[in-house]
Design a protein around this nucleic acid. Structure first.
Lengths: 352, 352
DNA sequence: CACCTTTGTCGAATCGATTCGAGGTTGCGA
DNA sequence: TCGCAACCTCGAATCGATTCGACAAAGGTG
């Protein structure tokens, strides 16, 4: 392959100056129809596919690329349908605005700071989706480079715009639902609370260490409903397997709770599996509820009771924030509404 | 915020020329330790975060960005764990090589040709993951721009390097396994074969239209094992719901098959759900096998019999191809090995 | 008919960094 | 002491396109 043809080549072939040729493509500025035609014809002739993005970027200072860091580990987060669906909404909203989504894998190590992508990719802005800790090497590197950052779920107070959902209110509604059904012994499975990942009961010490806003808000919502959980277990990840592990811990005891609220649907599914393993019927022996509102067709014929959050809207809201920032505005935080969705996995507690 | 500081600013502050300052960062060329130190110090002082990618890109002609088009519709493919895991492997392999992955949403419409991303994003190369049809507007646009393309699953003979798996051999092994168990009435659920999506029995007309290499190869593998399926149904997508639909079509008949082979694990899970709905036990009444080797913890305690393909290796192979192409080489097609993995969902046919 | 406005083109500067050849210093050996 | 080599540093060109001001030609008006 020869060198790529450039605007200059086209201009020469059309017998016009480079600046005129540029006008023919960008359309910004006065140009006669005839000339434009001639330039375009020459371009076709030479197989020129339009101005190179590189040159344009350099001039405009914009690359049209938004970096997305999902969670603190890309591979883990990729397996989370919640991230994926929000990412989908984000890419879908950014695309039409001429912005592309660049995946930024993060290992979660300190080493991230020197990640070649984070350090050098031509980013107009960056989005940290989920798992943004209060201080993260990536965040630091990004800010050092002067790249504006938007948070999809994450701590407020960093001076960064955040898109979140009504975690607290949603959890409260769900908790009230269970209370109204008559449940008094309610257990909770939380998302990873930050720091080392493990499946373990949560004690006050651990509670004080929480660095995961959604988990924190959802626990607050529980308290809003006036419910004091009989047990709280932290899951190692938002995965079915982790839910099963947590479920075993909670249910394989002498006096199990009558209801389990989990902080994600995948965890809830895992708990249901653990319950079945232990010979407990859902919801007759134990009620299980999740959070997210994922479609879980494989749970059929059961339908999970959950708090559904608007995935696509979340991605869209983030996209709008990014757009606003690039336009020089300073967007305010957004909290998206959630909806309590009753399924077949919750019911009255066993008569005992 | 003031204008971003540039290399020139740093050079001025350090009292050296721009070229020398550049040397201090790139390290390519002789430079005294003292000078380098001074430049770096000045950079820190000014909060300069290293050379801008834009300038570098322009000069080198490389952006370090690889576009990835997943399937013919990003949102659909995102829901497919297979795509996601391959993408994960790809991003993971490309990252350390300093290459980033840019998501390119495709609607599948003709309109894709004018997608702003496809048309203007500064791509060094592009990867079409799954669902690359023999002729796609995106592929055309990409090639017109002179961007090298690599296929992750897709038709050979386009002159594009392809990474695939041993679909044919894997299916053959699985089919032989079922035959050895004594099955004679075997039905098949295929992936979408191309064109309009629908759940429908496959007749010879449709068979002739297949534009989906994996589906085709897997059907070939069946024939290699000397098996003529009693029924073939095309699924609307590689999703659990679609599998359930197909399962109902196949199993809710007077004389159902004793085994169902599906072309994906998600489809298999759907078929299992359909079987349960119909009161059929798996594998006592009907055996079900998939393809992919996904982890399906929610199928517990069942474990799906399947042909497992190496997701991460696939992504890695694609990454290597991209690297090779960028290095000016012309990589050969790759076919990755698969492994028959026996689970609990296949067994001898019912005594009848 | 002269002058002013409009319209269309062009030249040159610019974006931010890389790279190569030229030139200046220093140091060492003869 | 002179000359040459090694080693740094610097200036300038370059990558590909955009953009602004200048300028010329065409058209309109008094």
């Amino acid at each position: 392959m020869t060198d790529r043809t450039t605007l200059a080549d086209v201009a020469a072939a059309a017998g016009v100056s480079v600046s005129t040729a540029s006008l023919a493509f960008s359309g910004a500025g006065p140009i006669s129809a005839a000339t434009k035609e001639r330039v375009l014809a020459a371009a076709t002739e030479l197989g020129y596919a339009g101005p190179s993005a590189l040159g344009r970027s350099l001039r405009s200072g914009r690359s049209g690329i938004v970096g997305v860091v999902i969670g603190d580990q890309l591979r883990r987060s990729f397996r989370d349908p919640v991230s994926v669906r929000v990412l989908d909404g984000l890419a879908g909203s950014l695309g039409p605005r001429g912005l592309g989504v660049l995946l930024v894998p993060a290992t979660g190590d300190e080493d991230d700071e020197n990640d070649p992508l984070v350090a050098t990719a031509p980013l107009d802005a960056a989005v940290l989706l989920f798992g943004a800790r209060r201080s993260s090497p990536i965040l630091g590197a990004l800010q050092h480079r002067g790249i504006p950052v938007v948070l999809g779920e994450g701590p407020t107070g960093l001076g960064l715009p955040v898109v979140g959902v009504a975690d607290r209110q949603g959890t409260r509604l769900l908790a009230e639902h269970l209370r109204d059904l008559g449940h008094e012994r309610i257990a909770v499975v939380t998302l990873p609370l930050g720091g080392a990942r493990r499946c373990a009961p949560v004690d006050p010490t651990r509670l004080a260490e929480i660095d995961c806003p959604p988990a924190e808000h959802r626990l607050d919502g529980l308290r809003d409903a006036g419910i004091e959980p009989v047990a709280v277990v932290e899951a190692a990840a938002s995965l079915v397997e982790a839910g099963t592990d947590a479920g075993r811990v909670l249910l394989d005891v002498a006096d199990p709770p009558t209801a389990v609220m989990t902080q994600s649907d995948l965890l809830a599914a895992g708990v249901i599996i653990a319950a079945r393993e232990l010979g407990l019927r859902v919801p007759e022996d134990v009620s299980v509820a999740g959070f997210d509102g994922l479609d879980l067709p494989w749970l059929a014929p059961d339908v999970l009771t959950s708090v559904s959050q608007p995935f696509a809207a979340k991605g869209q809201a983030v996209a709008e924030m990014v757009t606003a920032i690039l336009a020089g505005e300073q967007p305010a935080d957004v909290e998206l509404p959630v909806e309590l969705r009753l399924g077949t996995t919750t019911g009255p507690p066993p008569a005992a």
